[in-house]
Write a protein that binds this DNA or RNA. Structure first.
Lengths: 247, 247
DNA sequence: CCCTCCCGGTTGTTATGACAGGTCATGGCG
DNA sequence: CGCCATGACCTGTCATAACAACCGGGAGGG
C-alpha cells in the first residue's frame, strides 16, 4: 500500500489526509478537475492513494467545508463552482483566511515594543491621552512572497502578555484560545495609498506603487476595542474579498 | 448500549452523531457548559451516549466547524465562545450609503451602450462567449467633487430596459422597484491600482496616484448574477467601510 | 413500448481497534 | 529542594469492516 502517497517518508510529518486533501485541492484549482466534474469515487481513491476510506473521507470532508466540492449520495463527489469568496461574513485574520483557501501563509515579526500610543490609536482603543500601548509590527508572506505589512496596537493589559510568545502565527486564535478573549466584530476601513518607505522596503516595491490599506479595529464580545491594526497590502498581489447581503 | 441516545426509536431517522451534536450545542448555548469549560472527554462521552468514538468525533467535528468548541491535543475539548450573532451587512449602492450618512451624492452618466461582453463580464454574469451586454459608465460625485468612476455591466434582458431611463440616481432601488428584481447579495473584491487615463480624466488625478478599485457582482435573490461593476475610487478622498462579525 | 424491480456502484453512518503524540501530575532521584 | 522520568489521560490519525440509503441503468414483465 501507499503507492501514491508515501506513508511517512522519514521526515514527513504531514498526515496522509492532509497530503491527499492538498493534492486534490491543487488539482481542483489548477483545472485538473473541471467544475461539476465527478471526482474518483472514494473506493477508487483508496486504491490510488493506498489508504483507507476513512482517510479519503477526512480529506474530502475538509474540501467540502472549504466549499470546493459537494457530494451526492449514490452519485459521487463533484467539484463545486469556483466561488471566489466564501467565509466572509466571518471575522478572520490573514492566516486563517488564507489557510481556509489553501494558501500557505506565514509571518515574520519585525518588532514588538511598548510606546506612547499615537493619536489614532488612542481614539480607536479608547485610551487615556498619553497612555502607553503595545505595538507589534509584522510582515505577512503568501507563498513566501511578502504581501502585507501589519502594524497592530493592543492595550497594555493585553499586549504585555505577548512578549516572549511566538507571534509568527495567527493572532486571533491566540487571543481567543490562549488569552481567553472572545472576539466580537471588527470595523474595517479600506483605502488606497502610494507606497511609503516602509512598504517599499518590506514589500519589495518601487516608488509610486499602489498599496491597499486596511484599518481594522477588532472588539471583544463585550464591545471593548482590543486590537487596532493597519494592514498595507501590495495592490498587485492581493485582493480583499467579501460578500454582503441585502437586508 | 445506546442508553443515553435512543438508537433508532421507530421513526428517528436522525443519525446518532446529529443527535449528539445538537444536544451538545444546546447545552453549550444554554450555559450547561461555560465558556472555556472542558467538555467530557471523548472516552467519557462514548460511555454516556453509548456510541463509538468515531460518532462522538463526528459530532465534535461539526461543532468545531461552527466555532463552538476547540480542541487541544492532550488536554481536551473546550467551549470556545457563545452563540453566533449574525449582523448581516446590508448591500447598498453608493448613493444609498452616502445618503444614509448625510452626504450629498449625485451621478453623471457618461455613456450607455450595447457591446460584446468582455471576458471578465462573461465569466461574472455567466454569459455565453460572444454574447452582448449593456455597459453603463457613470461618474459619482460627493459634495460636487468626483470621487468614483463606475462601470456597470448588465445582461441584455435587464440592461436593455435601461435605455431612456434616468440613470443619474441609484440603480439598486431602480432594479428592485421599477424592474421588480429582488436583490440578494453581492460578492465584493477590493484592490489598489494606479490611476489610468480614464481615472485621471474624470477624477482630476495626476499620473501615478492611487486608486481603490472595487469589483462588485450583485445577484438577485435566486442567485443569478445581474450586475457586474468596476468602481474606481480616488484613494485620497474615499474610504470603504464596513463591519464584520466573528461567527 | 412502458413501467417496475433489481443490482451494482456510490456516499452516509457506525463499530472496533490500534498507535502516535501532547499534557499534566506525581513521585523518585540527585 | 529541584529536576526529570514515568505513566495516566487526552486528542489526532489511520485501518478494517459492515450495513443503510440512494442513484442509475438494465433486465424482465405487462
Amino acid at each position: 500500500m501507499n503507492q501514491g502517497i508515501h506513508p511517512m517518508a522519514e521526515h514527513s510529518p504531514l498526515p496522509l489526509y492532509v497530503q491527499i486533501r492538498d493534492r486534490l485541492r491543487r488539482e481542483i484549482l489548477d483545472g485538473t478537475y473541471q467544475v461539476h466534474e465527478r471526482l474518483p469515487s472514494e473506493n477508487e481513491m483508496m486504491g490510488v492513494f493506498g489508504v483507507s476510506r476513512i482517510t479519503i473521507r477526512q480529506a474530502l470532508r475538509d474540501l467540502h467545508n472549504e466549499g470546493l466540492v459537494f457530494s451526492a449520495q449514490g452519485k459521487g463527489t463533484f467539484v463545486s463552482k469556483p466561488k471566489a469568496v466564501q467565509n466572509v461574513q466571518r471575522l478572520e485574520g490573514f492566516g486563517e483566511a488564507m489557510a481556509a483557501q489553501g494558501y500557505e501563509a506565514s509571518a515574520r515579526v519585525l518588532s514588538i515594543q511598548q510606546l506612547k500610543a499615537p493619536k489614532a490609536v488612542v481614539a480607536a482603543l479608547d485610551l487615556q491621552p498619553g497612555e502607553d500601548a503595545i505595538e507589534v509590527k509584522r510582515v505577512r508572506y503568501l507563498n513566501r512572497s511578502p504581501v502585507c505589512i501589519e502594524n497592530s496596537y493592543f492595550p497594555m493589559d493585553i499586549g504585555r502578555r505577548m512578549f516572549g510568545l511566538d507571534l509568527s502565527g495567527d493572532i486571533f486564535p491566540m487571543l481567543e484560545n490562549l488569552f481567553g478573549i472572545p472576539l466580537g466584530g471588527a470595523d474595517i476601513s479600506l483605502d488606497a495609498i502610494l507606497a511609503d518607505d516602509e512598504a517599499q522596503q518590506y514589500l519589495n516595491l518601487k516608488t509610486g506603487e499602489a498599496i491597499l490599506r486596511v484599518e481594522r479595529l477588532t472588539h471583544n464580545r463585550d464591545g471593548r476595542p482590543i486590537d487596532f491594526e493597519y494592514l498595507c497590502y501590495r495592490g498587485d498581489s492581493f485582493k480583499y474579498q467579501f460578500r454582503i447581503d441585502r437586508k
